[in-house]
Design a binder for these strands. Sequence first.
DNA 1: TTTGACGCTATTTTTTTCGTAGCATTGGCG
DNA 2: CGCCAATGCTACGAAAAAAATAGCGTCAAA
Lengths: 101, 101
Amino acid sequence: MAKSKKDRPIMVLLDSLGRRWSLRIIWELQEGPATFRALRKACDGVSPSVLNTRLGELRKLGFIEKTDDGYALTRDGDSLADRLIKLDRWARRWDKRRRGK
Amino acid sequence: MAKSKKDRPIMVLLDSLGRRWSLRIIWELQEGPATFRALRKACDGVSPSVLNTRLGELRKLGFIEKTDDGYALTRDGDSLADRLIKLDRWARRWDKRRRGK
DNA sequence: TTTGACGCTATTTTTTTCGTAGCATTGGCG
DNA sequence: CGCCAATGCTACGAAAAAAATAGCGTCAAA
């Protein structure tokens, strides 16, 4: 059986991160662990069912884990979050270009 | 009026990229311009309505544009795609860690 | 024993996405 | 010209995902 596009790690990643709130959750956790309820608030009040679903997915992928302090990034999750931080800086420049013309 | 979280460039970005097919479209265009139909095929046959919606959004954000060769990344889009390429390499290592015990 | 915060489930409504058909336009080609 | 194939894209009903909200069960402090 041929290796499908979908099996490539990047596709698994793009597919998962391309779901609502996935990126955002990682972004928010980057400031430290958070409880379920705190995470909801941070994410503009995302509904608990979706949040729970996403947490499960991100957990399965090994990006987050449950700790005594609530949900927290794993090593991999932290590594991924680093990229988001860099993206933040990129986004600011992009925004300037875009609006500042 | 206070500056809301949602106004930050990174939030605009996370929100847009966190929609289905957004990341994937940029990923696919990184190999060069593609027609509407070619893009559909590349993206696992995504429905034309959604594709069109996403193309509009990405266009508004300045990541892609229409050219004679079809849809293509702009300079900003290309810059963003660079990050995805790096993420690809990251994803492979992550995958090895994950499955390779 | 009441109170409050917690993680989370359940249920209903609304929004988004999918799947498919097909229309309008364009560019050969005879 | 008429025909054809390919294109970008719209339309629309069905299915899936997400939102909104209520509230259960647990625990720990008061």
